[in-house]
Design a protein around this nucleic acid. Structure first.
Lengths: 213, 213
DNA sequence: CCGTCCCTCTGACATTTGTCACACACGCCC
DNA sequence: GGGCGTGTGTGACAAATGTCAGAGGGACGG
């Protein structure tokens, strides 16, 4: 064991898992992180399920997950990892961060949340921060989340709004939710009013933007 | 001037402009392309207008543009470049390629269209291909575009569908299009029928997926 | 225990939206 | 020119949607 005085991260480099479906980014990122002496990319994955399998096999210290991946999204993977590998810290990297994702991520135990607009060096610092046990949330995304505030929708309203998201007619939504059509209309109307939307479709759009569904 | 026998691209390296709002990717990409002897990244930009300004200043041989950028999207930049710098080849790199974008891009004179799932080395090859004057379109994206086929919508139908995209009520659409409400309903109904949609909102969603609006 | 508040749920009613039949203009082929 | 097909535009009618008033139930504090 090397126990001399080391100033670049100590004897144990941080073992990193990289998961992103865009090879271009993942490969480039791996190359840049490899330049950091104290970081070691031990596994890469291009999908949610693959990320989980890789994590089981390689037991990384930190998992860097893209939000949008085929199969399972980043937050879902983080949730699963929390249960399976409690010692593994998770962080999310995302292209266009919407407030709701941030809240979902933090609820799933994610320790870091950053947009892809940061530099690689900054990302390396954040990986170290997260590995050390601190949390890091991009200030701009945090501001967005705070300014957008909590969802004013009740659970049922959000649920029905989600069922209405693909433009289905009321009758179909009512059937899927096992409710009377009138009830469905009422919830959607209430949700639209809270969101200052003209109708349920505009409400869906607004709720999406705010990350509330 | 070096004029000896060179086998890695000749005496004039390909001058490349990189435009992408995600620093993480742009920086990483620049680093990876720098490993190629015959490619030289002469400028980087994080937005559409910035990309144009950089292109004017540095006159690159090939402009690698992200599709989604603040200010002006990649296709819009490509259109402007075609007029201002006819000698500059343009190519689009995109995260999630939808058929309509590909058609728009080709119409704008773009010579290359690739998803971000390709590797950096592959991208380097494609930059060379494009610089040599050939075109390159990712096979999978091309297949999508062909299978999705041409839009069955007439010009007016597509136009009104676009106005309906944010969930606005018919009256507002009619006003913005200077048409009678009945006419608007008729066009949207026709568009919905062609797309096998239950209503105009579902039609909007389908047309978006197919890249027809 | 009681009142109060909020969420859930429903049906009746008015408004909005989708469907249909039809009129007009334009381009095309014979 | 005459016949034909297609895109554009309109209004009447039927169906879907949004609005409203209100009933029932659980949580919370006085």
């Amino acid at each position: 064991m090397t126990d001399g005085a080391l100033d670049t991260g100590g004897p144990h480099p941080v073992r990193v898992l990289l998961a992103d479906d865009e090879h271009l980014i993942r490969g480039a990122l791996a190359a840049l992180l490899a330049l950091e002496d104290d970081l070691l990319v031990v596994a890469e994955a291009a999908s949610g399920p693959e990320a989980l399998a890789m994590a089981r096999a390689h037991r990384p210290d930190v998992a860097v997950l893209d939000l949008q991946m085929p199969g399972k999204d980043g937050v879902a993977v983080a949730t699963a990892l929390r249960a399976e590998l409690p010692g593994c810290r998770t962080m999310i990297v995302t292209g266009h961060g919407r407030p709701g994702h941030l809240k979902r991520a933090l609820a799933a135990g994610v320790r870091g949340f950053v947009p892809k607009t940061v530099s690689a060096q900054r990302l390396a610092e954040i990986i170290r921060t997260v590995h050390a046990g601190s949390r890091y949330v991009d200030p701009e995304l945090a501001a967005d989340a705070i300014s957008s505030g909590d969802s004013p929708l009740t659970a049922r309203e959000a649920e029905l709004l989600e069922l209405a998201a693909d433009g289905a007619p009321i009758a179909e939504i009512a059937e899927r939710a096992s409710l009377a059509p009138g009830t469905v209309r009422n919830y959607l109307s209430s949700a639209a009013a809270k969101l200052s939307a003209e109708n349920r479709h505009a409400a869906v759009r607004i709720a999406r933007e705010r990350g509330w569904i």
